[in-house]
Design a protein around this nucleic acid. Sequence first.
RNA 1: GCCCGGGUGGCGGAAUUGGUAGACGCUGCAGACUUAAAAUCUGCUUCCCCUUCGCAGGGAGUGUGGGUUCGAGUCCCACCCCGGGCACCA
Length: 816
Amino acid sequence: MRKYPFKKIEKKWQEIWQKNNFSLWQAKDLAKQKKIYILDMFPYPSGDGLHVGHVEGYTATDILSRFYRMNGYNVLHPMGFDAFGLPAENFAIKKKKNPIDFVPKNIERFRKQLKSLGLSYDWQRELSTTDPSYYKWTQYIFLKMYERGLVYEKSAPINFCPSCQTGLADEEVIGGKCERCGTATEIRNLKQWHIRITAYAERLLEDLDELDWPENVKEMQRNWIGKSVGYEVLFMVDGFEERIAIFTTRLDTIYGVTFIVLSPANELALKISHPNYLLNVERYVQEERKKEKAGIYDKEISGVFTGSYAINPLNQKKIPIWVSNYVLATYGTGAIMGVPAHDERDFNFAKKFDLEVIRVVVPTEGVQNFEEIFIEDGVVINSDEFSGLSSEEAREKIGEKLSSLGLARKVVNYRLRDWIFSRQRYWGEPIPLIRCPRCGIVPLKEKDLPLVLPRVKYYKPSGTGESPLKNISKWVKTRCPKCKGEAERETQTMPQWAGSCWYYIGYLLKSKKLRNWDKRLLQYWLPVDVYVGGVEHAVLHLLYARFWHKFLYDIKMVPTKEPFVKLVNQGLILGPDGQKMSKSRGNVINPDDVIKEYGADTLRIYEMFMGPLEDSKPWSIESIKGVFRFLNRVWALAGQVKKNKIRKNKDQEILAEVRVKLNELIYETTEGIKNLKFNVVIAKMMSFENFLRNFLSKNSNLNIVDEFLIFIRLLFPFAPHISQEIFSLLGGKSLLDLEKWPEYDKELLVRKTFNYVVQVNGKKRGVIVSEKENLTENEVKELVSEQTFYKKYIKGKKVVKIVFVRGKVINFVIGE
RNA sequence: GCCCGGGUGGCGGAAUUGGUAGACGCUGCAGACUUAAAAUCUGCUUCCCCUUCGCAGGGAGUGUGGGUUCGAGUCCCACCCCGGGCACCA
C-alpha cells in the first residue's frame, strides 16, 4: 500500500504546536469575542491507555473546536483527568504499586496519546481531580453542603461490593452488579455519609425539559428520579392502637382492597400481629431480613398472615393483613393496599394465598372483556357514591373525602434515594470532617483545606468496612477545631464521582492556579455549550453534576441553573466481529497501533466516517484502508498542484466549474460540521477530491493552488497534520489554526441546471433537464411532449390530472 | 413486563425532511500498468426478467400487512425483529 510520509509530518507539526506551551489553542478569558465552551468527558487514566471510543468523542469535539476557532470564536476546549476512584486504585493494587506513584504515570501516558492525535486542547488548563489544589474545592463544596444541612450520616442497609470492599450508591449498581467490577453486590448495614440529592429531585426532573440532550438520556434520568403522585392512606387495625399508612397512586381502586401487605422490614409487622400468629410472623420476618442483608433477591413470592385485620376507611370492611417480601421497605411507607383486580403483583399474591378479588374499575367503552385483571384507568364501579366516575375523578374525590376525615394526604414520592457518599477506600478525596468526643461532628475550617490524602504503605481495603486511612494514627489524630481537644478525622473518602461533579468549572479556575473562584470567569464561560461523551454516565455523572451545579447555583457560586446545555452521546465502537470490544474476546483495537500503521489523521477521519456520531458501529479493518487511500490521493494531488504553481492560467473561465463545486463543498462542510454530520461531510470531500483529480488530468497544466488550498482549509479540522503540511508546502506561511474559515457565495449555490422528474401515475418515466429556473407548467409540458417517453406513456392516453411542483416534478395521472 | 432508540444492497452507511432510493467508503468482478506480485489507476457491482448484447427495454424493491396521497424509506394504524435502559417503585 502506498504511504504518504505521515510519521514525519505528524511529528513535525505536533512539535511546532507544542512550542509556546500550546498557546495557539489557548482560550482567552473575558475576551470580547463570542465564546463557545466545547467539553469532553475527561477520561479515567486507567493502565490500559486510551481506547478507540475516546478517540471518537475527542475527535468530534476537536473538529468543532478548530472549526469555531477559524470562524472567529473564543473557544474553550480543555482536557483533564478523573484520576481518583476505583479503576485507578484497583489497577494499582493489581500491579502492586501505590496509586500515588502510579497514577501520574498513567496520566502521562494518556497525555502523550492525546497529543499524538493532534487534539487542540488548551493544555494550560489541564487538571487532575487528584491534585490537592483541585480537590481543595471538591472538599470546599462538600463543606458548603454540610453547612446547608445536605450532608448527614445514617446507618442503613446499603449496597456493598464484596470485591471492591466498599459501599456503593444505588446509581453504581447495574442490574444487581457492581458498576466497576461486575461482582454481585450485597446489602450491608453500614453507617454512611449521605447527600440529600432527594431535596433536588423535583428541580432535577423539571429542568430536564429545557435541555438539548438526547431524549433517551433525559428519559433515563426521569425514570431514575421516578416521580409518582399519590396518597398516603391510614388504615385502622382491628383491636390494636397502631394504624398502618400505605402509599398508593390508585386511590380509585380503594374499594377493591382485599388485603394489606407490610414489608418484612416494617416495624409494624410484629406489633400488630395476633398473638397466635406472632411466632410465625417473627420467624418469617427474621428470615427475610437475613436474606435482604445477604443481598439475596427472591423471585418467588412468599408471605405470612398476621392474624390481624385492617379496616377499610371507606366501607369499614375488614381485610386481612399480611407480611410479604414483595413489598419494598425503601419505597413509600413500606406497606401497600392489595388490590388484586387491578395490580399484577397483588393479583399474583392473591392467587397464591387464595385471597378475594374484587373488581372496581372497568374499561371506559366497548367490550367489557372479562379478563381477570385490568390495570389501566377506566370507570369506577362498586364504589358507593364514587361509582360511575372516571378513575381520575374518583382519585380526586376519594382523596378529598379521606383528607377531610384526616385519613389521607396527597403525597409525592420519588424513587430517587439520597446519595451514599462515603467509600471505605484509600484513593479518593478525604472527607473533611472531624469526630470530636465532645462536640460531635465538626467540619474543617475553610482555611485548613485542602485536607491532603496522606501517603500510606498499605492502601488495600481492609475488608472490615473501615478505610485504610484508619491505620495512619498520625493522620487520624487531630485537634477539634471547636474545642481544641483531641479528636479524630473521618477516615472514609469520597466516591469516584465527586471530582467529576464540577471539573468543567475547574478549568475556569485553572488560569489562576485554582486559587480563586472568580465569578466573572464563570459568568463569561458557563454554561458548557457542547458536551460530548458516552451514554454510560446518564444516571451517574450527569445526574450528580447537575445536582452539584444546582446547589452551587443556590449558594450563588455559579450563574446558571444547568451546567450542560447540549449533550451528545457518541455511540459505542464495536469490535470487527460486531461485539463489544473486550480483552477477553480479543477484539480490541488499540489506537496506538492504528496510528503506527496509518497515522493519526487516518484514524481521526476513519472514526468520523464510520457512521453517525451517536450510532454504535463496528470497526472494519478493511474500511479504514479506504480512508488512508483518500489521504494518499490528497497528498499526491497536492504534489501535482504544486507543479503548476508558477503557471499563469490563460483561461480563467475553465476554473468556473471548479469554483462552483468548491463553493458547494464549503457550504456542505460548514453546515455539516455545525450539525455534527461528520460522516456525510467526509463523503462530500472524497467526492470533491475525485472530481478534482479527474479535472486535473484533463487540464494538466492549470494552476489551481488557490482553489486547492480552500479545500485544504476545509479538511484541516478533520486531518490537521496533513492539511497543515500541504498548506505550507504550497506556500502558506501561517498556521492553519489562525486562518479564516472559507466563506461560500450564496449566489454561486444557485444551480445552473434544473431537473424535472417526469412521473406517470407516480412512477418515474423520465427527466427533463433545463437551464431555466422556475419553468412554468406549460413550458415543462411542452418539453415533455418532445421526449420519446411521451409517446410511450402519455400520448393518446386520457390525462385525468397533472400535478406540477415548481422546480421539482411533474406527474401525469392517466385514467383508464 | 414497562420506557426509549432503530430495521435501506454482500457490508458500514447516504437521501435537500413527502418529489430521480442506494451518495461516499469497503468487499467482489473486469481491465490498464508490471516479467510477476503488491501498490496505483479505470470501469462495473440492489435483485429479477427480456434482449436484436446497443451508453436499449421491462418489472420488483427501504422488516411485514394495511391506510392517507398525484406521489411514501420519509406521514398514520397494526404486527414482527434487533439494540439500549429500568425492572417487585404499589
